[in-house]
Amino acid sequence: MTHVITSDAAAETARGTTVEFRGVQRAYGSTLALDGLDLTLHAGELLALLGPSGCGKTTALRLLAGFDTPTAGEILIGGKDVTGVPASKRDAGMVFQAYSLFPTMTAAENVAFGMRMRKVGAAERKRRADELLELVGLGSRGGSYPHEMSGGQQQRVALARALAIRPSVLLLDEPLSALDARVRVQLRDEIRRLQLAEGITTLFVTHDQSEALAVADRVAVLNAGHMEQIGPPQEVYARPATPFVAEFVGVMNEVPVDGGRIVAGASETKQVRPEGLAVGGSAGLPGTVLTSTFLGPVTRLVVSTEVGELTVDVVSRPGLPGIGDPTTVSVIRG
């Protein structure tokens, strides 16, 4: 379905606000969940906060939402210090991993709830709810109750509800992790489209690197309460700043090279993504295929060699070496 944003709606969405974490620390007893986080979200951008469980990403989101208070540091929205401002007074919309819809309200009533709490008139509430349900592809489901809708549809309603109050900041807390793979990809793309259409500064918290790389303007990688790297997805993937980022964001091979060839015992080492290696050819390092995983356009091979196990992504095609077959591995030059 193609959704059209009216000129009035487009004018309303030409906005966005900056968000700043300035030296934000959060301690729980002797444990530092965040240790001096400095982070700026630019107006209208989608920033993905990526990291493993316990890295501090959800703590950062809760602090921005106002559900928790920093031990030290400041949080600013639109240049205003909101560190001590309660959640109800912050101009933020939030979508949780759990759909958190009111079971006794229809989809339209759920979307309109925040507006009703803000004393928006009934006619405007209905207009905005209908507009957003249409925008998320649920224009015909406004009268449906949550139990009558799929998980993906419920999460779309939750997204529409968060957008209904026209927040300055949108907070997404692992919003796709409870969905199956196909729906997750569809809704991921829908979130990005709506975020661009509405022009809302968005913090997207996830542990899924593919989600972060697919939708974000920038990706910030956290580890044990510290910022490891922040930058455009392509930069974080192609030029990881630390060994942790190299291992966490995608798969990385560390190979000894001499003159561009993989040579056991070579003094120089090079970090190479799986797509930067090739199998076959007389000049490659000999090895044996341990696993072969068909991923559609590419097949992922894990090859045992004298320098360790190397992961290689090759274009899927007939004639690739199978499990137990001998092959060679080389670095693609270019």
Score class of each variant (00 low, 15 high):
residue 1 M to C: 06
residue 4 V to S: 12
residue 8 D to K: 14
residue 11 A to P: 09
residue 23 G to Q: 00
residue 31 T to S: 08
residue 32 L to P: 00
residue 33 A to M: 03
residue 40 T to Q: 15
residue 46 L to R: 10
residue 47 L to K: 06
residue 49 L to S: 13
residue 51 G to S: 01
residue 55 C to V: 05
residue 56 G to E: 04
residue 56 G to L: 03
residue 57 K to F: 13
residue 61 L to S: 05
residue 64 L to N: 00
residue 65 A to Q: 08
residue 67 F to R: 03
residue 71 T to E: 11
residue 73 G to H: 01
residue 74 E to D: 13
residue 76 L to Q: 10
residue 82 V to Q: 02
residue 84 G to S: 05
residue 88 S to P: 00
residue 92 A to E: 04
residue 98 A to G: 14
residue 102 F to C: 06
residue 105 M to C: 12
residue 105 M to T: 14
residue 109 E to D: 15
residue 115 M to P: 08
residue 121 G to F: 13
residue 124 E to P: 02
residue 128 R to K: 14
residue 129 A to Q: 04
residue 130 D to R: 06
residue 130 D to N: 13
residue 133 L to C: 07
residue 144 S to K: 13
residue 147 H to I: 00
residue 147 H to G: 02
residue 152 G to Y: 02
residue 155 Q to A: 10
residue 157 V to Y: 04
residue 166 R to V: 00
residue 167 P to M: 03
residue 168 S to M: 06
residue 173 D to V: 14
residue 175 P to E: 07
residue 176 L to I: 05
residue 176 L to E: 08
residue 188 R to G: 07
residue 189 D to G: 12
residue 190 E to I: 01
residue 192 R to G: 05
residue 201 T to L: 13
residue 202 T to G: 11
residue 207 H to I: 11
residue 213 L to N: 06
residue 220 A to D: 07
residue 220 A to P: 08
residue 224 A to Y: 11
residue 232 P to H: 09
residue 237 Y to R: 00
residue 241 A to L: 05
residue 241 A to Y: 00
residue 246 A to L: 03
residue 248 F to W: 11
residue 261 R to F: 04
residue 265 G to A: 13
residue 278 A to C: 01
residue 278 A to V: 08
residue 280 G to M: 11
residue 281 G to T: 10
residue 283 A to L: 14
residue 285 L to T: 10
residue 301 L to V: 05
residue 301 L to S: 07
residue 311 T to E: 04
residue 311 T to F: 03
residue 318 P to W: 04
residue 323 I to W: 00
residue 326 P to K: 14
residue 326 P to W: 15
residue 327 T to Q: 09
